[in-house]
């Protein structure tokens, strides 16, 4: 009796683990199918060109104007700004933590980086609206501090932990022999970091940046609170923008089911999905290349 029941248990456990393993694949596929089913219906009321390239977003007017070009540009601008701030800062911090800092301080720094990633985005948004937004307005003499720049700064805070910890792993994964060799040849510590270590860790660092970008691109709450959400085509970081994510979050609650507005929001979801997927795929390919080396 004992052996068959044990075999059965093994069998059962294997199946359960298998199901857990493919669950994420199934979920992603189902989510995409669902988005596609709901989102494609937007093409009944507007052409693909006027949806992706339209300059006006007046979703509840009759007839509704459903152009998401300002929203796409808004998302890209905020993300771009965050990358410019967070990537250099994150990589420098990773090098400091991995290569320079004394061992005891390293543990403290690493735990603070983790705490930073645990701050809820709505709390960051709250700080942004009460402190950062008035500060930027007064320092830069802008008409309003609710700008793409405020969003970029908030998002940079959110991307930093991802960028720092993954870059640090990549730096630690550089074989010790490379470093020892460089030092033995008479290179200084800085020369070793700058010419040797960074070279070995580069694919991992790029992947870290890409994952940080993915995190930033999909973020909603903090962005919605500080960017002003005006659906105009932005010309600089110092203007208000409306992002794709904030649009879905702000409008989904009220969109009448089955209306063009409702389908347009799902179509925005598809656009977000496709862009995030591309970012994550790039990051994955780079990480894999890193591992093979």
């Amino acid at each position: 009796m004992k052996i068959p029941s044990r075999r059965f248990r093994e069998f059962l456990i294997e199946r359960i683990i298998f199901l857990s393993g493919i669950a994420s694949v199934v979920f992603v596929a189902l989510i995409f199918l669902f988005l596609l089913r709901e989102g494609v219906a937007v093409l009944k009321t507007t052409s693909l060109g006027s949806f992706l390239g339209g300059r006006f977003w007046y979703p509840i007017s009759t007839p509704a104007k459903l152009g998401i070009l300002p929203l796409i540009l808004g998302s890209l601008l905020v993300t771009g700004g965050a990358v410019i701030i967070a990537v250099p800062l994150g990589i420098a911090a990773a090098f400091y933590i991995a290569e320079v800092v004394p061992k005891r301080l390293r543990m403290i720094l690493k735990s603070f980086v983790e705490v930073l990633s645990a701050i809820p985005s709505v709390v960051l948004g709250f700080l942004g609206i009460t402190i950062l937004v008035p500060f930027l307005k007064n320092v830069l003499h802008l008409p309003t501090g609710l700008t793409a720049l405020s969003g970029s700064i908030m998002l940079a805070f959110m991307a930093l932990p991802t960028i720092i910890s993954i870059s640090e792993d990549a730096i630690n994964a550089v074989p010790r022999e490379y470093k020892d060799g460089a030092l033995a040849l008479g290179a200084t510590h800085w020369q070793t970091l700058y010419r040797v270590v960074i070279h070995g860790a580069l694919p991992g660092i790029i992947a870290a940046a890409m994952l940080g970008i993915g995190r930033v691109f999909g973020e909603t709450m903090a962005v919605m609170m500080v960017t002003g959400n005006a659906a105009v085509i932005p010309h600089s970081l110092f203007e208000p923008v409306r992002t794709l994510t904030a649009t879905i979050a702000a409008e989904m609650g009220e969109a009448a089911k089955g209306s063009p507005h409702f389908y347009a929001l799902f179509a925005i979801g598809i656009v977000l999905f496709v862009i995030s997927f591309a970012i994550n795929l790039t990051a994955d390919l780079l990480l894999n290349r890193n591992r093979k080396q």
Binding site: I129, P134, P143, L146, G228, A230, V232, P240, A250
Partner: peptide, 28 residues
């Protein structure tokens, strides 16, 4: 029903709190 809309550049605030906060801090 009518053709009139808010200016595209109008900032869309997620809450009355957000409007109150920005109004208290900004002369414009």
């Amino acid at each position: 029903k009518g053709p009139e809309e808010f200016a595209p550049g109008a900032l869309m605030m997620p809450s009355s709190y957000a409007i109150a906060e920005e109004t208290a801090n900004n002369e414009n």
